[in-house]
Amino acid sequence: MKKFSVLFTASAVVIGSYLFLKYFFSFYLQLPIPASLMKTYMFLIVAGTLLALTADDDSARKLTAPFHSLLFDPSLRRSRNAVFFVLPFLGAFITYQSRPKTEAPVEFRTVHPAPPSSMTAFGKTYNLITLRNPYRELEINDPDNFRKAVEEGKAVYYRNCLFCHGDKLRGKGIFFDAFHNPHPANFQAVGTIAQFQESYLFWRISTGGPGLPKEAAPWLSPMPVWKNHLSEDKIWKVILFLYDYTGHRPREVGGNE
């Protein structure tokens, strides 16, 4: 046992980390780590473990000692033969397992692409950098009318957005299964509306899936072009509702206010 201790520790660290990352995240937190990210993590963990254990010659020797003795120690002849016998089969098996599978071709897609600097809708051209939600100032100046605007936005949401983005604004509406790729945005998550200015939302809502730039795969998104269905006014109000319901604040830009 003592002879294998360094190698044993190293293996325990690597296997333990793997099990933790895999099972704790996917089964307990229900947030599985994507396979590609998992590979990166495991690479870092293996590399880190090797670095730590080979920091000086002595420990490096200890780490490789079991391999050395497996090759040279006459008393380990049987184990050596067994390992030599099994390895080619193991290699062949892994190769067979990694044969091409019928998985969906990977489609790289920018989820939140950079907005254009301007857009046209409702017969007007908007500068998206300076564009502000006209109702936002009511929040301080006229709270009663602000609440009214939020309520109107709520009605717009429930009549139009609910089906995909859901009752909890988590992107799990009744169309979630059908529109799973790409799935509807989760407004409660920190990575969506909390990151954007209101003008970004105005752009995304008004121009929908087809308004996305090419890197965001506009042909896949079932997001409607809402300027065909909703007035400018209603779009601004539904944006108020999204922030009000989730408690996120829109990102403010520019220091000259």
Partner: peptide, 20 residues
């Protein structure tokens, strides 16, 4: 689909022989 695993297995066996 079967040739590649066979090839990899043989490759490892040859490597092992060299090591031995």
């Amino acid at each position: 689909i079967y040739l590649w695993p066979l090839f990899v297995g043989l490759l490892i066996a040859v490597g092992e022989m060299a090591l031995a």
